[in-house]
């Protein structure tokens, strides 16, 4: 099941905890992976760990020209891009009344607009191949909202609407577009929380614990697979029951 041999996957934000795990999971199923991110060192380390079938493709997603060039670089390195995982994201949290234009624009630009640009860039090859998978990594807060994250929640909800619209347009070409919406996931970022803070968070999660990057990666592996060919425009919530949507 979920054999990805012969497929090439471009993963953005592969220098982060969740992105790296998604790349590992797709690679483990046989895919060639293109590792993109702003910090090259962790990408090189991950490529070294994976060995064959791993390509490092550094890119600053805030830079429009670099984003537009990335799908072409990925296709040149891997032969094609059959699977795109729009995972990269940033936060610039602030109370809405204090949020600057810049905080708003930066988050929308990196989280949503770069996903638009990359999706557009990989579609030509997918249309020709009559096969493609686009997976957007959204967030539970895109559906529930979160104080202090008006910009982030808007970008993550935006990914869902974008994915559904695109899913309509390209479904007849055997290209699926889906969204994975993680809840609280244990990453180096959440490691900084105190035990008290963690306990409070876990109280709100029916599963009683945070999720793992591997649990997000497993959802991506499924959506990337041949077996998920009839699933499109969907949002797969992976949140331990924190919000049952």
């Amino acid at each position: 099941m979920f054999d990805l041999n012969g497929k090439a996957a471009l993963v953005t934000g592969a220098s982060g905890g969740i992105g790296a795990e998604i790349a590992r999971a797709l690679h483990a199923q046989g895919a060639t992976v293109g590792l993109s991110g702003t910090r090259e060192d962790p990408l090189q380390a991950l490529a070294g760990e994976l060995g064959e079938r791993a390509h490092v493709l550094p890119c600053n997603l805030g830079d429009a020209d670099a984003v537009t060039a990335l799908p072409k670089e990925a296709a040149a390195a891997m032969g094609s891009v059959d699977i795109l995982v729009n995972n990269a994201g940033i936060t610039r949290d602030n109370l809405f009344m204090r949020m600057s234009e810049e905080e708003w624009a930066d988050v929308l630009n990196v989280n949503l607009t770069s996903a638009f640009r990359l999706s557009k860039g990989v579609l030509r090859g997918m249309m020709k191949a009559r096969w493609g998978r686009i997976i957007n990594i959204s967030s539970i807060v895109g559906a529930t909202g979160n104080p202090g994250q008006g910009n982030y929640a808007a970008s993550k909800a935006g990914m869902v609407g974008m994915a559904k619209s695109l899913a309509y347009e390209v479904a007849s070409r055997n290209i699926t577009v889906n969204t994975v919406a993680p809840g609280f996931i244990a990453t180096p970022m959440t490691e900084k929380l105190t035990d008290d803070q963690k306990a409070k968070i876990n109280e709100q999660i029916p599963a009683g614990r945070m999720g793992t990057p591997a649990e997000i990666a497993a959802a991506c592996t499924y959506l990337a697979s041949e077996e998920a060919g009839y699933v499109t425009g969907a949002t797969l919530h992976v949140n331990g029951g924190m919000a049952m949507l």
């Binding site: 030509r124 249309m127 020709k128 390209v170 070409r173």
Partner: peptide
Amino acid sequence: SLDTVELVM
């Protein structure tokens, strides 16, 4: 409309 995009390609 998608066919026309593909034709142009």
